[in-house]
């Protein structure tokens, strides 16, 4: 990692790795490019891209059953594809998956079609049994510590929403979708 000021992606990635999270899957978002680059470069984690977030939840479940600490890197729209896997797999068998979620449709969104799912996501997560915390700025990354500790102790899934404000400056170029 660089010796200059760490980017929001680096801060997030270090935070999650410090909890022993060692197995990742991802589906891209323009806001997540930095985190995905870090994942691809990290020789100490098992990582694969997946075709769909729902498939990812199945893979994370297998990883947890084998003793790993798994996480998914995804856009909030992906939550719309996984509710059944959350309820009938991860929730039912109590698999503590960590979900690192870029929050499109939050303040600063330029693509209108991202807004409805952006507005719905937190309520849908909570209704499906996922504890959810928003991290609006790197200063609030302590919420990730609390959430991961809770998830591992309770064996429940946890999600962190990272709106545009979190990624400001370093990672985001608005031309990218």
């Amino acid at each position: 990692m660089s010796t200059t000021t760490p980017t929001p992606s680096e801060l997030l990635y270090r935070k999650v790795r410090a909890h022993g999270i060692d197995f990742f899957v991802s589906v891209p978002c323009s806001l997540l490019g930095g985190v995905i680059n870090l994942l691809e470069a990290d020789r100490d984690v098992v990582y694969t891209p997946v075709t769909r977030e729902e498939e990812g939840m199945g893979i994370l479940t297998g990883a947890y059953l084998a003793g790993r600490r798994p996480a998914i890197v995804m856009q909030n729209s992906g939550y719309g594809t996984i509710v059944n896997a959350i309820c009938s797999l991860v929730g039912y068998y109590r698999i503590p998956t960590v979900m690192l979620v870029s929050h499109r449709g939050s303040e600063g969104e330029k693509i209108e079609a991202q807004v409805p799912m952006g507005e719905a996501v937190q309520a849908v997560m909570e209704a499906s049994g996922v504890r959810c915390a928003t991290v609006p700025h790197p200063d609030q990354l302590g919420r990730v510590d609390e959430g991961i500790e809770w998830a591992l102790a309770e064996e429940r899934p946890v999600a962190f929403l990272f709106p545009f404000s979190y990624w400001k400056v370093a990672d985001y170029t608005p031309e990218h979708r």
Partner: peptide, 21 residues
């Protein structure tokens, strides 16, 4: 491991297991 819900995800659970041990 009997997958009692999550239709479609048996192979994904197996893949996660195979990647992990």
């Amino acid at each position: 491991f009997y997958m009692l819900g999550s239709m479609g995800l048996a192979s994904s659970i197996g893949l996660g297991l195979a990647m992990s041990q």
